[in-house]
Design a protein around this nucleic acid. Structure first.
Length: 459
RNA sequence: GGCCGAGUGGCAGAGUGGCCAUGCAGCGGAUUGCAAAUCCGCGUACGUCGGUUCGAUUCCGGCCUCGGCCUCCA
């Protein structure tokens, strides 16, 4: 089945056809490294990780780049407030972000370029834009001249007049056009800056992505992704710059944007203050449960985050790992994921549908009566899980990590279970039930199976 | 004001012009010493008012409600 993806630019689903099937390119806007990432920041990382996994099963080489913005006013402010070097701030939060995303099961991207390593490329691109009359230098600034690009506004679906009418920012007096945006701006001695033909300065926000894409992926890329709020102005401006710098070449084949995470229906945002960081969430829940919760809604839909969504995700995974635990002894047969799962993902990453099919695969495994059947179905379930980036742990490791989140005295539980087994063997069921009731009071559920008594921590 | 989304059963959340989403929770049954796990089964779900249609949750239009972007933002 062909892979179809929704293209923000055309506002419809399109068949994905890479320019070069031997080298598929994807660029996703990452984060500004100034603080802990919140769970909303994690949504694109997880969503595009699923796409990365899916593409990797279809194409021999997929280059996935996710950038870090490491020069920015918020970073400067954090550096001054904390009295530490800028690089100390960015290094710290890039490392934390990497660890957090890894905990969420996101594979490392092929490339993670930093803005400050590409200043020369940015300057070079700005010079091209100046030469092409798409930009002008004035008072130490270089500005992109929006009217010079006829296609401006296509991506976000707005025209210039609307934008000017709705503008909430004061227009700098030296702008030729109110919509013009900064490519380069002067810097002060106390702030980071680089020498340039226009004096010591620093780049505008949008140019870094254009320059890094050109440097690492090429003039045109197959997929450009990011959060919905980046459509305007960030991606609109990137599109304008890159297209103009490359004489009209198509910048990105497909533009993809994930919807927002909300808290009580309101956008999760640091400025609103209704955020919960991945770092904090990981203290109470396995990363895999957070990942599952992030994928329960289609990526373009809004997703309301709550403690309950995590609990529910965890329970669902408990069930799936429970199914896998039952077949621990069965040797896996190497197979592809069930077609239904793959097809769901090929339809614009319909992860909820894929999850429904994973549930069906687990049910089939539970229903299986012969070992060869179990071996095959186990293989299918694991392959399906791998596409979504879940179910790859050993079941006992999953249950152990879930248990460790609560403080349960494992030795005490084991001792009580042994006592209960002795009571059962003596057919003293009254005593056995009394012991189980004590165990239950510890928050532990036990299961008598043919291969012995297992226990796990209740919610 | 301009542009763009969304409103589905107790909760989460897909999808479709006529038949089943799925998961969690709940109820009944099988199984179990009792449980748990698993399996089987159950619940008159589609914001509202009109229109198109043999038939609409699904298409069209009005309305209501909520959210997003237009400024840094995943």
């Amino acid at each position: 089945m062909p892979l179809t993806l929704y293209n923000t630019l055309t506002r419809r689903k399109e068949t994905f056809t890479p320019a070069d099937p031997g080298r598929v390119t994807m660029y996703v806007c990452g984060i500004t490294a100034w603080n802990y990432a919140h769970i909303g920041n994690a949504r694109p990382a997880v969503v595009f990780d699923v796409l990365f996994r899916l593409l990797s099963t279809r194409y021999p080489k997929v280059i996935y780049a996710r950038n870090f913005t490491d020069v920015d006013d918020k970073i400067n402010a954090a550096s001054q407030a904390q009295g530490v070097a800028i690089k100390a701030v960015t290094d710290k939060f890039m490392a934390i972000y990497g660890a957090d995303m890894a905990a969420l099961g996101a594979l490392p991207p092929t490339l993670e370029p930093c803005a400050t390593d590409h200043i020369q490329q940015m300057i070079a691109m700005i010079e091209v834009l100046l030469k092409n009359d798409n930009a002008y230098a004035i008072e130490g600034h270089v500005l992109f001249h929006v009217p010079s690009f006829a296609g401006y506004g296509q991506l976000s679906g707005r025209n210039r007049d609307d934008m000017i009418a709705g503008a909430r920012v004061e227009v700098a007096p030296f702008k030729k056009d109110p919509a013009d945006f900064v490519l380069w701006k002067p810097s002060t001695p106390d702030l980071p800056g680089w020498d340039s033909p226009w004096g010591r300065g620093r780049p505008g926000w949008h140019i870094e992505c254009s320059a890094m894409i050109e440097a690492h992926l090429g003039t045109s890329i197959d997929i450009h992704g990011g959060g919905h709020d980046l459509i305007f102005p960030h991606h609109e401006n990137e599109l304008a710059q890159s297209t103009c710098a490359h004489n009209g070449a198509t910048f990105a084949g497909i533009w993809m944007h994930n919807g927002f995470l909300t808290m009580d229906k309101e956008k999760m945002s640091k400025s609103v203050g209704n955020i919960v960081t991945v770092h904090e969430l990981l203290k109470d829940a396995p990363g895999e449960a957070l990942r599952w919760a992030l994928l329960t809604a289609h990526y373009r839909q809004p997703l309301d985050w709550s403690a309950d969504s995590v609990t529910q995700a965890k329970r669902t995974l408990d069930r799936l790992y429970g199914t896998l635990e039952q077949v621990t002894a069965i040797e896996v047969e190497k197979t592809a994921a069930p077609r239904a799962v793959t097809e769901a993902l090929e339809d614009d990453l319909n992860t909820p549908k894929a999850m429904a099919e994973i549930a069906a695969a687990a049910k089939a495994l539970n229903q299986a009566t012969t070992d060869p059947e179990r071996a095959r179905l186990k293989g299918e379930l694991l392959a399906a899980g791998n596409l979504l980036g879940v179910l790859q742990q050993r079941p006992d490791a999953w249950f152990a990590s879930a248990a460790s989140a609560k403080s349960v005295d494992a030795e005490e539980v084991e001792r009580l279970i042994a006592a209960r087994i002795a009571a059962r063997n003596a057919r003293d069921f009254k005593e056995a039930d009394r012991l189980r009731s004590i165990i239950a009071d510890l928050g532990v559920i036990i299961e008598d199976r043919t291969d012995g008594t297992k226990w796990r921590v209740a919610e």
